[in-house]
Nucleic acid binder design. Sequence first.
DNA 1: TGCCAGGCAAGCC
DNA 2: GGCTTGCATGGC
Length: 302
Amino acid sequence: MRQVSIEGIRDFDLDHIFDCGQAFRWNRRPDGSYAGIAGRRIANLRFDPCQQGGRLILSNVTDEDFNGFWKDYLDLGRDYGAIKKELAAKDPVIGRAIGAGQGIRLLRQDKWETLISFILSQNNHIPRIKKCIEALCCQFGEKAGQLDGEVYYTFPAPETLACLEPEDLVECRLGYRAKYLIGTARKVAADGLERLETMGAPDVSAAEAFEYVTSFPGVGPKVANCILLFSMGKYDCFPVDVWMKKVMNDLYGLESVKEISDFAGRTYGSYGGIAQQYLFYYVRQISRRQSADPLTLENRRK
DNA sequence: TGCCAGGCAAGCC
DNA sequence: GGCTTGCATGGC
């Protein structure tokens, strides 16, 4: 199989990247590799860490694909080591979270797919969000190809979803989010997909992009910030969900969303969104450990 | 078995 | 403008 191998990659860990709630169409294989789809491109990623920077092996990928797409998608051009240093220098507490998710990278994902995916994320668990999205792609996407015996489907286009009615979506089990999805698809189709795409341009401010994406039904401040951060390169955005409320309360004693957002802007600056991902991964890791280990202090008190 | 999740919109004051 | 409530669903 066609394959690309890249040496000397630092600040990179597949579990951290694909298990930090930013992308929903990647799955861990028993060998520790991840298989997934982006656009029409299907790939398997494997990473062998080593002291001097590890080796990333991308299967089902050509050199042309790597240079023209995957390099940017995986954000390999960014120096996360420098960002981590900068964040740690600004704030003494975040070092713990950076240590937990040291290999996180923010994927540069498709804007339309991210918009719909995070509409489906609201008041939902990550494993179930993945199921909803797979059902949607399987039913309304196009067959993109096959890898290791598994068939992959593209994310359905705006026009495809725009002409659906809620009853067409019952099998996807989206719940009350189905009507938001249809309303948003219709508005994207009416506005033209280009309008959404232009929001990712560097000269479009986060505030302007925020205003546009919150005009879609089912998109409030939290979902909007996720879209801006995960698909539009607005790295100062700081999405606050229930996990972030918990970790920001535990670490800094902050309570309200406004308190948390203000603190983040003040403290982490232009890389607040990246700080947010380390914190998100950290608090979820702690939570998982506690539920896996009944002898932790918190559980013993019960 | 309930509780809860990468929240939002609508209705209240 | 801030606060409360209803919401579909299923993983844990």
